[in-house]
Amino acid sequence: MKRWHIILVRLAILATILAAWELLPRTGTVNPLLLPPLSEVLVTLKVQLARPLVQEAILITALEVIVAFIIAVPLGAAAGVAIAEFPYAGAIFKPMLFYVFSIPKSIFLPMFILIFGIGFQQKVAYAAFTTAFVVLMSATAAVESVKSDYVLVARSFGATPLQILRRVYVPSMMPVLLETLRISMIFNFTGVMIAEMYASRTGIGHLISNWGENFQMPQLFAGVIILSVVAIAFNETVRYLEARCSTWRT
């Protein structure tokens, strides 16, 4: 298929979904109380975005996401590089990581609440905790993605460790590093959302769970749209950078 063909078909699919969202509740095929028509949701979205309460909630959520990310990435990356670079540490910890990954991290939320309360710190701590594991694993994979031949060649030509780091490790890890950032951000965002939905007084996650409990469907769908758009926009930006940084590989 040609490129513009693909785009046309995708737009057609999107248009069909949006049209169905508008028409099914309007014609009564679907109960409009359960699925409000798209136009109604969009009007609500505009109204909600103008409310100071909602703006404040979005700001707090954004801060939580950013702070948690700043804490989790260096911690996870350091541990991940250590596991990849020291075979003995790897032999000890790598098998444990499998189990850690399959455990639902949310079961530790009660501990975070007992220690940090239900404020800003608890959201950041929990999200950073869940994200650090993802960063750790991705960082290990990133280091292991560097071909040992490259390092060997560089070393034979008398490169210093610093040069090896700058000229071999960083360029070959770049695409994987960006992928790591992207994937960790997805989990970081999820972590903040779960923590806010579980127990909170503010934040957009708290708002949508409240709207859900009060059966305010237009508001709930408006909140879901806001969050989805932000998440997808961030993801696509990093994916674009990823593609640009990995052109030399192929």
Binding site: G212, L220, G223, L227, A231
Partner: peptide, 23 residues
């Protein structure tokens, strides 16, 4: 056609859909 779309959608934290499901 679809794989890139699904990988984009994957960025959305699915937990935000849970209030819809309970409703």
């Amino acid at each position: 056609l679809l794989l890139p779309v699904f990988s984009s959608l994957y960025a959305v934290p699915i937990v935000i859909l849970y209030p819809i499901f309970t409703a």
